[in-house]
Design a protein around this nucleic acid. Structure first.
Length: 228
DNA sequence: ACCCAGGGTCATA
DNA sequence: TATGACCATGGG
């Protein structure tokens, strides 16, 4: 992974898709809820769930905790795994209030805040980094399936590296540039949704010209290794 | 009738 | 430490 190449890819994606002003959501808390609901789930489904929460005036930690698991599950049903996610949302909200809310949480160092987020049941590395970057504006790079697919197709990484390994290499090249980290993950996701499909049926990818002899394109998205 | 989507946890060997 | 099972809806 090379800094100049990364910047080149970023510039090209931004030129084509940006600026995106992520994350879609009106408040930090909405970002956090969306980050949990979008786990392994299409965003269009999450939008429906969030709409239901807003209609029920439930998009606040106290309100989510006040709902029964069944009622909360009914509201977020379109986002899939609704039983699991209802529990995860309530675990998260309980933690959020126990910690003292947005202002107190904002006072923590990024490393500390990340560790605390990861301690919540249902918050894994990607969800934690979504929240850190898009709700707390911390300089972290979010690794997701789109990132692995794109970078491996472009021959920039193997693709099956552990989460922390990929995150660290990109952060090392970009530094603490929050706006750039924000936009980079955003354009990778939009690019993945609109153009760079899992199976090689895309001929429209602006980056494909740069894929070594189409070899990158035919590479199936790799699965991450478990740990170090 | 498939395949896919902005993951994470838990049990088991 | 490493797999595998499981979670579930909606759109293409």
């Amino acid at each position: 992974m090379n800094a100049q190449r990364l910047k080149q890819v970023f510039d090209r994606l931004s030129e084509h898709h940006g600026p995106l002003n992520w994350w879609p959501g009106e408040s930090g808390f909405e970002v956090m809820v969306g980050a949990i609901l979008t786990q392994n789930t299409a965003w269009s489904n999450v939008e429906q769930a969030i709409t239901h929460l807003k209609q029920a005036n439930a998009l606040a930690p106290e309100r989510i905790l006040a709902l029964s698991p069944e009622d909360l599950g009914a509201l977020i049903r379109p986002s899939g795994y609704f039983n699991v996610k209802a529990r995860r949302l309530q675990s998260f909200c309980q933690w959020y209030l126990d910690q003292g809310g947005q202002e107190i949480l904002s006072g923590w160092d990024t490393r500390v805040l990340r560790a605390r987020l990861l301690s919540v049941n249902g918050v894994g590395p990607e969800t934690a980094d979504d929240i850190l970057l898009y709700a707390f504006e911390r300089p972290v790079f979010v690794v997701d399936a789109y990132t692995r697919r794109l970078f491996s197709r472009l021959g920039m990484v193997q693709g099956d590296e552990p989460y922390e390994s990929l995150r660290a290499s990109v952060e090392a090249l970009i530094g603490e540039d929050v706006p750039m980290l924000n936009e980079l993950h955003a354009v990778i996701v939009i690019h993945g949704k609109e153009v760079c499909r899992p199976r090689p049926r895309c001929n429209a990818c602006v980056l494909l010209e740069e894929c070594p002899t189409g070899q990158g394109l035919n590479r199936f998205p790799p699965k991450p290794r478990r740990s170090s």
